[in-house]
């Protein structure tokens, strides 16, 4: 069992910013995901239903969408925010494991590295549509 905090140990407000940004990123994600899912899938779907588009969504269609300015902005923001929100959520769950909580700093650093690497990888993939 982790020892309860004494007044001396608590030198400042710990854990406020992860908690706060989880909420901010969550709110932004709702707006951005609505655009991402709706325009990315349902506009294409409507075209399928109306018969004005091929049945399958393939490279050319995805490329057209992703190369639009709005999508470039939405998708890069999404990539960053969703990685932060998701990995911060995982951190919250992992912290409930005593073994992970003991190495909280190393775990947090590891998650940042994983997030940064995934962002670079995801951005590299997105660039193929834009360039």
């Amino acid at each position: 069992m982790a020892a309860p905090l004494t007044e001396n140990q608590a030198t400042g407000v710990i854990g406020f910013w992860p908690w706060f940004f989880q909420r901010i990123s969550g709110l932004l994600l709702i707006a951005l995901l609505a655009v991402h899912i709706w325009m990315g899938h349902f506009s294409g779907l409507r075209a399928v239903i109306e018969g004005s588009q091929e049945e399958l969504v393939l490279y050319s269609i995805v490329q057209q969408r992703l190369a639009q300015g709005l999508f470039v902005f939405v998708d890069f923001s999404l990539l960053g925010l969703v990685l932060y929100h998701g990995l911060n959520g995982m951190r919250n769950i992992l912290l409930e494991w005593p073994a992970a909580a003991r190495r909280a700093q190393a775990m947090t650093l590891g998650l940042w590295v994983l997030g940064a690497a995934t962002f670079v990888y995801g951005a590299w993939a997105l660039l193929a549509f834009i360039l």
Binding site: A2, L5, E7, A10, T11, G12, V13, I14, G15, F16, P18, L95, A104
Partner: peptide, 8 residues
């Protein structure tokens, strides 16, 4: 400060 921690 004592209450506002990640175990608080």
């Amino acid at each position: 400060q004592v209450a506002a921690t990640e175990q608080g």
